[in-house]
């Protein structure tokens, strides 16, 4: 699936469901199978990160990585470092009891 198909709605839904972090893997710029899907993703991620920061969820819970299909080592490195980063930040605040209702 092209990263350009990752609607901002998917990202917000993941956070709503309690995801502690969301990572989007895209082809390198200039190498998108659909030519420019990843440029759009990059722009959306920038805006989403600013929004997450502004509402206090935290921009570092969302990351975009450019990983080619041949770069399995980069894939695993990115996921590991993102997991570590999220562990440091801690669990998502959205599911906290105090925010549950009303």
């Amino acid at each position: 699936m092209c990263s350009g198909r990752v609607s901002p709605h998917f990202v917000l839904k993941a956070f709503q469901k309690g995801a502690d972090g969301v990572i989007i893997a895209a082809c390198h710029l200039g190498e998108c199978h659909y030519q420019k899907g990843n440029y759009l993703t990059a722009k959306r991620v920038d805006v989403l990160r600013d929004m997450l920061k502004f509402v206090g969820i935290g921009e570092d819970r969302l990351r975009l990585e450019y990983i080619a299909t041949s770069e399995s080592d980069k894939l695993s490195r990115s996921f590991t470092s993102f997991t570590e980063q999220i562990r440091t930040i801690g669990p998502s605040p959205i599911k906290r009891k105090e925010f549950a209702r009303g």
């Binding site: 350009g4 710029l29 030519q35 899907g37 440029y39 759009l40 990059a42 722009k43 805006v47």
Partner: peptide
Amino acid sequence: GPLQYLGDGK
């Protein structure tokens, strides 16, 4: 708008 087209807006 920047989010309305594919390609680089930056």
